[in-house]
Amino acid sequence: MLNRKYVPILVTFGLLAVMFAAGSFRYTGFFSAQVLYNLLIDNSFLIITAVGMTFVIISGGIDLSVGSVIALTTMICATLVERHGWSPVVVIPMVLIFGALFGTLLGAIIHYFKIQPFIVTLAGMFLARGICYIISIDTITVTNGFFTKAAQTKVPLPGGNISINVIIALVIVLAAIYLAHYTRFGRNVYAIGGSEQSALLMGLPVARTKILVYTFSGFCSALAGVVFTFYMLSGYGLHAMGLELDTIAAVVIGGTLLTGGVGYVAGTLIGVLIQGVIQTIISFEGTLSSWWTKIVIGLLLFVFILFQRLLSDRRVTLKT
């Protein structure tokens, strides 16, 4: 029997396959392993961020600070390594811890003061973006050997090659799948998203789980920031502008319900890839302008959310 909770994710996967097939028939050179690898290479930071966001959304919250945490991470990496000559071996663990702490702080405020996640992470977004500009308003180019080596290393695979970033992203996806489905923490996140009150009455550690969810998202954003630094080889306050929306869109297209309680990390990966395929098709088409990406993603969001509404039995009240 096909469990109906898997339907959204299957539809999402079907859509990815259909879009890729359509692209392959229409454009010569589209159907190749390298195009597929490029999807991963160009979106590795988005995959990592979206994984963290998936947990937040499953828990019933939202994290708007991800884009600016990425920008801040690139900025801190670039400044410390380039201007102060710190070793990347010290800097990278430091920014990862910083990102996690930033998330913890937001999560603690959300939980203990009962303020909407939307507004708290909005403040976090302003704060992180603002700190970037305080550090510097210019682009800082990264020329450090470790970073350039990480950026240029290619891992050969049949039919092409991938970058280190892709490996990091895929490892995070696998770790997150394990975390979501095979650990107590994962079960707690789903339980809280389903009904926080029930989770509390069942004696689940609501406070710890909720804060940890934001910690994880902060960590993912910081890791995405490091990956972004590998990808762009620069630190800049305007990096990853509006990425929080792309991330939320990817998570939703991947079949996660924004009401919380339902969602899959694997679906999120497919959601990111669908966005990537749209961009690839638009660049292959050549005559279409870049803004069509936004319109198509908006339309896809619409279709998917409508589809989810039809599938879900839950009566969702009009409250946010």
């Binding site: 976090g124 302003f126 500009y133």
Partner: peptide, 8 residues
């Protein structure tokens, strides 16, 4: 640019 920090 600091407006953002103050706003936060």
């Amino acid at each position: 640019e600091i407006t953002l920090v103050v706003k936060a």
